[in-house]
Design a protein around this nucleic acid. Structure first.
Lengths: 195, 195
DNA sequence: CGCGACGTTGATTTGCCTCAACGATTGTGG
DNA sequence: CCACAATCGTTGAGGCAAATCAACGTCGCG
């Protein structure tokens, strides 16, 4: 039996909430499949994010470019994660960030209007997304605390133990960017850690 | 005419939403006034935050204490701000933070259950808090980006221009804590900036 | 008055950056 | 299928930003 993106999505929902048969087909009908080439950009600064997106296959990143044109990665996403500029999506204001595919990827998208319809029809879906939002908030808060109170080495070791799967598939300089350090320094750190 | 805390709260709501007469008295009835002594702690780590709180008078801080017992201030709050550990409040899980009065303060509190009742009765109130949550999210995101991409001096100057009122009433070492630097370094920076 | 809380100063150390150069892969067009 | 260009990681020298530590001055307050 061939694995279907929308079935994976349903399984993902069902890890948190339960859905009846008719609700499952309702959900499936609201999502559209979209393919992204490697390096393809899904959201540009200035765009308003109007979709929530679930990663079926691939790897994406959300990053911000500062005045000196330096990139700062805010989040990675891989299979079964949601990626977005949540702030732009929630407030319908132009994003200041990029969302880009690091690898060839397949995502499932749902438009805001369509999602709001789903919320009316299936309260559990609303609950699911409320929980996602809360999780996004706390992980952002954890990052802020970590960045303020820990050394780069501590942050790296933590990242590594928490996201080994991500570490293994994205270039090292992107991990450096996520940690807020230079690739050179990350390289030196790794050498030291390896003893 | 003497200024009444609850009238101030109503005016605060009405900067964003509009309320009818009967709604105003409904809102007023749901909030309780609470006084805090200087240095009094409102939320301890381990507590679940069950109230939203509006600052009528005074100044509070929300901080986190790391393994080395160093404090890291996440947010300040003064008149007309809301303070909380939002994550604990939203998820009903134990907080990892402190919320403490820096000065003698007067706050208006509403319990989660009471607020949910209000949401049912007055949709505009729900909208008001949704906007607050979004703003909390984006300001957290801005902080993360700033901490990763700017020097301490840039962050200090930004803080100063954005929150001059706060800078003037909290001890300098707390501003250093907020910025993620030592009091000594902040002192040296200030000397340099003053030329 | 005396003490604790706060800010300042200077010397020293450390964490991390910048820049420049150089392999090692990977990808791509001819 | 090769040749060449990108892309990526590493190394090392030198420099700056910020921490640490210790000492001291000042002020408000019980």
């Amino acid at each position: 039996m061939i694995e279907n993106p929308k079935d994976v999505l349903i399984l993902h929902f069902q890890e948190t909430i339960s859905l009846k048969e008719n609700e499952i087909s309702l959900v499936k009908n609201h999502f559209k499949i979209k393919e992204l080439k490697k390096k393809e950009i899904l959201i540009f600064p200035g765009d308003v994010s109007n979709h929530m997106q679930f990663i079926y296959k691939g790897c994406l990143r959300n990053y911000y470019m500062d005045q000196e044109a330096k990139e700062h990665i805010l989040q990675f996403g891989i299979e079964n994660w949601w990626v977005n500029d949540l702030y732009s999506y929630l407030t319908k204001t132009p994003s200041k960030q990029f969302v880009q595919a690091i690898e060839k990827s397949i995502i499932l998208q749902i438009h805001r209007d369509s999602l709001n319809e789903l919320f009316d029809q299936i309260p559990a879906i609303e609950r699911f997304f409320r929980l996602k939002f809360e999780k996004a908030y706390v992980s952002l808060q954890d990052r802020t605390i970590n960045t303020l109170s820990k050394t780069a080495e501590e942050r790296y070791l933590e990242f590594r133990s928490q996201y080994r799967d991500i570490e293994q598939r994205v270039p090292q300089y992107m991990i450096a960017s996520y940690l807020g350090i230079t690739p050179e320094f990350l390289s030196a750190m790794r050498k030291k850690i390896a003893k």
